[in-house]
Write a protein that binds this DNA or RNA. Structure first.
Lengths: 222, 222
DNA sequence: TGACCGAATTACCGATGGTAACCACTGTGA
DNA sequence: TCACAGTGGTTACCATCGGTAATTCGGTCA
């Protein structure tokens, strides 16, 4: 088993050893967190190591490469955000309230911790070397993908969308998440309206606001 | 024959000068385009200069820094895409067809040129050094912002959205663009459904599909 | 011809991600 | 008590990148 390998130490029972190394990982991630929140997503491995009171090679032992560290770090925050959103999505209310609560939860999160948010949207960072992968579709922030899939599942489970319901649910899941994300990103920069209003507008959009609005008199129609 | 002929002395009027330098810029951008499409968004300034048959400092003379080059490059593609989208948005049909045509135009574009798409979504690249700016809101791809603002204008002009119409139009503009973007990004990776279907699903979502769907029997409601 | 001027190149700097080589400490077996 | 093995850790280093001074080269004017 040797779950984390390394150690090879016959010394203590492996459980104990694993305990230590995961505990260590947590400490390192805490340090990385502080640095990233302070210096932005471009924080260097050296500074992170320094914050943790160690040196680079140890970080590389634990996380492989920068991408690995950032993935681990992002995973923590993503998990936390996902938990909040799931809670909002599971609250026992009617549909509209549920949607508004979810939107509000997300927007509150990014408003409260913009640095975390910014980091989560930039995990790739594609260092100087290599990076040949051109699959064009996984570069986007994994957070959005996870949110989209999550929402797709919820929608697919709870709504009756007909024969092609699965595909439809996935499209809607990713689409709604993208709407929330883009609007939130723009709003975070300018904050031209209070959060509650943004939530209402977005929910209105999902509620078919675009269909119900009348053409402007004299306009070429929309 | 100094076809490129760096003018050699102020001889010519400035107009001529400008002509030459903008022509040169175009050539350099063409070269940069080829390299970026070949090596991905992480292409180095050296390789771009080599492709253009010159050396780094010239690139820096023309574009200031890497960010500048990438901005110029992105601007070209963004402008082109914006033109197509405006055309789709201005076609004389009824609202639903117009929306579907716009979605289809965008999705066709990213499907046809995924490398360009990928580059456009990663223009920041935040080099190794500095990069202290933490405003958390301008890091996102400028393309999405421009699209969002554009759509907001169109929506605001053509629809009668009541007293707070301007704010509402901006939220909707960015929201719709984000929906299109996220769904497109996900779809580009998996392509689980044909494009026409994706377009229909997204339009359905905007047409209030989420409101009209029935709860699944036995589900906790959505 | 020779001084001059500007464009382009070479050579370089500092910083980064990543790694190999080295070091020190600690407990074990004789 | 002492060699030893294995651990975690550090130092020193490499290739590469973005960016820039110093320098060379080609042509123009007196």
């Amino acid at each position: 088993m040797n779950k984390t390998q390394r150690n090879g130490g016959r010394a203590g029972p492996e459980g104990r050893e694993g305990q230590d190394t995961t505990e260590r990982r947590r400490e390192l991630l805490d340090a990385a967190d502080r640095v990233v929140l302070r210096d932005g997503p471009g924080a260097s491995m050296n500074s992170i190591a320094a914050e943790a009171g160690i040196t680079k090679p140890i970080l590389y032992r634990h996380f492989g490469d920068k991408e690995g560290l950032y993935r681990a770090l992002a995973s923590r925050h993503t998990d936390a955000l996902l938990r909040s959103l799931r809670a909002a999505l599971d609250a026992p209310r009617e549909r509209r309230s549920r949607v508004e609560a979810t939107l509000d939860t997300y927007l509150t999160a990014i408003e409260t911790h913009p640095q975390v948010y910014r980091f989560l949207m930039h995990p790739a960072e594609t260092g100087p070397a290599g990076e040949q992968d051109f699959d064009a579709g996984q570069h986007s922030a994994p957070l959005l993908r996870r949110l989209g899939e999550e929402l797709a599942t919820v929608v697919g489970e709870r709504l009756d969308l007909g024969p092609d319901g699965v595909d439809r649910a996935r499209v809607w899941g990713h689409g709604i998440v993208g709407m929330m994300h883009a609007a939130g990103d723009w709003w975070l920069g300018e904050q031209p309206v209070p959060r509650e209003q943004l939530v209402r507008y977005l929910a209105d959009l999902l509620w078919g606001g675009l269909t119900e609005a009348d053409d402007r008199p004299g306009a070429p129609g929309f």
